[in-house]
Write a protein that binds this DNA or RNA. Structure first.
Lengths: 197, 197, 197, 197
DNA sequence: CATGAATGAGTATTCATTCAT
DNA sequence: AATGAATGAATACTCATTCAT
């Protein structure tokens, strides 16, 4: 009768996200989530409608936070290079805070996006692409980036390069998301061969 | 008229690989593979022991070919930069020829590698890492690469950069694997910002 | 077009009987029979209509031979004790010659007998019971057997005692069916405790 | 109202045992067990891991009880003849209480015993043989049994004689297991022909 | 809130059987 | 006579979900 406590829901979502990230959504049984939460499978249904709704909440929550960060960057009116740097940094910060959600997103988004319920994934991808492509084109026109770049290829290159890091990134004391972001950026922007001084 | 058994197996494996790549291994039902092959689910078992053995053959076949290419490169005695270039090019060529297998590998390898049957995946990963890390360290020592690189991070950067491309790369007339490889390499080696000439 | 050779059929039936006896009818696959015969599963269907028809032929053939022996004994006009001895001996002879068929019969007859196709099994059981019960009652009336015997119980006792031997009897040089029969008979007739001389 | 879990398991095992005994383990489908229990096939898996584990529990439970009885007899220090009598009586008592388990054991033990999971069946058979053979040999040496007995044959004779009764024995008011045991014993010990007084 | 027990739709797999060659 | 390939029905088992307590 009384509505489920939001705090408990949050805990449970965190647990579910970890298991989904570890094993994949399809390979994860509701029972495994319940085990990890110290309850029985059926009990999860007091808090959530379905396994799919857990996934939904995890992904939607992640995208909400991500776009909060991105929108701030895009609204700041930075130059193309600085925008790229800020977006990449924001992305690594998001990986740091929602690692499991990012990993789930990486693995499942493509197949989920075709379902009506997960239409917002496709929408987010479009916005994402628009933001990055726009910035790259602006930089190309202004000479911030090499003139011979294939913009779409470069977009994919940066996008994949950044997000795939979620599959191995584990937060520890040494590598803060900002440090990782700076190292990635130095490779993406300047490459791995030495520049002639 | 009807092709001999090994040819049929090959056909079926190709079909299965495409469906696995499209939907994920777990989310793919044997019935879907059979549908795609124009036969009934049970009929697949005349050719294969199990769904898992199909996956096994797909991945093992891919890794065999991949290592044939890599071993050739590594035995050629090239310099570090040329080795990286050749490895990346070999990888894109492999993506071109075994796109679905690469996509499956990307998505499933981590979870499969812990199973005894798929132990060769873990072994291949170790060899893979050794080859790349060794080359990078050699280049670092010899000045082919920037002295401030974090070798492990760079390894992951290049590795992911290349393989993730399998998730969107579709061969067409314009972008041969060699062309894609060259464009990627120019970004990885020299970055996306213009070099002061 | 040309009818299958009866000789080959006989061979195949013998092989099938052995596998059925070893593993049970249900647990035996047509493929296992074919393997044992050095052919492919489908090829058996040139010789037989179905797996069930193999079972049918095996059991019918065995019962035919068995009754040939029994009828001879029953028609001979022996006394009750001699009849029992002759029936037991005939049974052991049949076990010796059709061990697998007897083993199959023991294991499957009860469940098969309810099917119309195998109605002859039930019929045979009834005849069997009539022959044994009649002999025992004749012996009881004539004083050949102990007066305090429960005839039905004794019938089951002897029947089970004899036929179950098929589950372990293996023909070898030392124990001919006649020898085994004589030893059994001495136990059944005189018991295992010493008779006061 | 609803009985606690172990009781329900016991109920279900009893039902499964009856169906296995009636139709044979292989010929019994999980659905048939579920039907007999008034539930759906899948629901059985809430209580048991597999069809095989039901069989396992049934057989192990039966053997545990059987050996409880046998060990009591063997430890009592009776003479050979009294030991045989007590073992036979214990066996019929067990047939009375676990009729289906005994019938399953009779039909399936030979083929199951080779599987690692059912290794305890083979072990039990060895112990069983040791107990009976030892008793028979003791009796032979001490003159309780006829000097001309073939001990192994006699062992099989008695063993089969007793256990095969499970296939037809149905408890009713008139024939308690003790009564049946006494009648069997009188035949086994003294035979069916009259003794010269 | 949580449990225990069940449902029912699905899923991989098996296997007797068929049939063109 | 035998093969290779397929069919189709059945079967054990899984799992998300429901619900009375």
């Amino acid at each position: 009768m009384s509505p489920p406590s939001p705090a408990r829901r949050g805990e449970l979502l965190g647990i579910a996200a970890e298991v989904f990230a570890e094993q994949g959504y399809n390979a994860t049984t509701v029972r495994e989530i319940a085990d990890a939460a110290g309850m029985l499978a059926g009990s999860l249904y007091y808090h959530f409608d379905s396994k799919e709704s857990m996934l939904d909440e995890i992904l939607a929550g992640f995208l909400d936070e991500l776009w909060a960060g991105y929108d701030g960057v895009l609204a700041a009116g930075l130059g193309p290079r600085e925008t790229i740097e800020a977006l990449v940094t924001a992305s690594f910060r998001e990986i740091d805070r929602h690692r499991s959600a990012v990993a789930i997103y990486q693995r499942e988004a493509r197949n989920l996006a075709v379902q009506p319920r997960f239409g917002y994934l496709a929408e987010s991808q479009r916005q994402f692409e628009r933001a990055w492509l726009g910035t790259l084109e602006r930089g190309l026109a202004g000479g911030s980036f090499r003139a011979d770049l294939d913009v779409r290829l470069t977009y994919r290159f940066i996008r994949d390069t950044v997000w795939v890091a979620a599959s191995w990134y584990r937060p520890d004391g040494q590598h803060s998301p900002e440090v990782i972001a700076r190292q990635y950026l130095s490779m993406v922007l300047d490459g791995i061969t030495p520049r002639p001084s």
